[in-house]
């Protein structure tokens, strides 16, 4: 019997719950560390980014209005789906030169991280909300709620784990996001889109783009309908560019470039709070 020829996957993007190619039809070569071709990935443009922001903004109302319980279940469902497909992700990481054992740890950690943040959705406002004992005859309470549309700039390192570590705290509170994936290995992020598609995540809540960061960071961080940027790129020029662009519309920025994405410190509620606004409501007390 002749050896069966494997069917290769065309890697596309994930925007608004669909899998479009870049509107530009451009692709770029993704290779393993030895330089061997693995796949062609979409080389997204400013236009793709703007489309993704529209999708994220459209999805924001529904997602942020879901009950915290429901969002927790959806996050948990993502973890379930990822668990079922973990072999695919292990192989995809191996393709890019990661040792099988390391790839397996990365996938496992990513799944567990999703579970961690799934559990925060209905606790964050209990732990960080307050009833404020004002001196006047008013009932007054403060509760955190989602900031809006968050642009995520993912690192190259540990492309699956880092992407999930950045996405999970952002969407847990009701934000929607656009993620600019790892440039050197965007494949796990794109495949993660397939997991999302099968996980009850409404289209547009997570939008995954691939391509050259240098072609997207500027547009993403200057887009006025993006409320916050979660950036993992340490380069001072990139940080400065993001911060400067953010000032156009008083965008929140959070720079986060850990050396070790496996560390348990990345599991904390302060990452969720980073992309939340505190709303304080007053009402008179009286007959």
């Amino acid at each position: 019997m002749a050896e069966r020829l494997e069917v290769l996957k065309t890697y596309k993007t994930y925007v608004g719950g669909k899998f479009p190619r870049s509107e530009s039809d451009r692709t770029y070569r993704v290779t393993n560390p030895k330089g061997t071709h693995i796949a062609n990935a979409c080389r997204c443009t400013r236009k793709d980014l703007r489309d993704a922001v529209v999708a994220a903004r459209t999805a924001f109302g529904d997602w942020s209005n879901r009950s915290a319980y429901n969002r927790g279940q959806v996050l948990y469902r993502i973890a379930e789906m990822l668990e079922g497909r973990k072999e695919q992700f292990v192989k995809e990481l191996e393709l890019a030169g990661v040792k099988e054992k390391d790839a397996r740890v990365e996938v496992h950690t990513a799944i567990d991280r999703l579970i961690y943040f799934a559990g925060w959705t209905d606790k964050i406002s209990q732990v960080f909300g307050t009833v404020n004992p004002v001196a006047s005859a008013h009932f007054n309470f403060s509760s955190p709620e989602a900031t809006g549309v968050v642009g995520i700039i993912a690192p190259d390192k540990n492309p699956l784990l880092s992407a999930i570590s950045m996405i999970a705290p952002v969407i847990a509170s009701g934000n929607t996001c656009i993620i600019v994936s790892s440039e050197t290995n965007p494949l796990p992020a794109v495949s993660f889109g397939e997991v999302l598609h099968a996980s009850d995540v409404p289209g547009g809540v997570i939008n995954i783009l691939t391509g050259y960061r240098s072609e997207m960071v500027d547009s993403l961080s200057s887009h006025k309908d993006v409320n916050a940027i979660f950036n993992s790129i340490e380069e001072p020029e990139t940080r400065k560019l993001i911060d400067e662009n953010a000032s156009i519309s008083v965008k929140r920025t959070s720079h986060y470039s850990p050396d070790d994405w496996f560390a348990v410190e990345h599991e904390n509620p302060y990452l969720v709070l980073e992309f939340m606004e505190t709303k304080t409501t007053w009402h008179p007390v009286g007959f």
Binding site: T130, N140, S142, T147, S249, E277, T280, T281, W282
Partner: peptide
């Protein structure tokens, strides 16, 4: 950031204040 219902322009040191967008 602040929602005054059936009242307006009330401030208190225990009450967080600040904006969105």
């Amino acid at each position: 950031g602040v929602m005054w219902s059936n009242t307006y322009n009330k401030f208190d040191p225990t009450s967080p204040f600040g904006g969105y967008n």
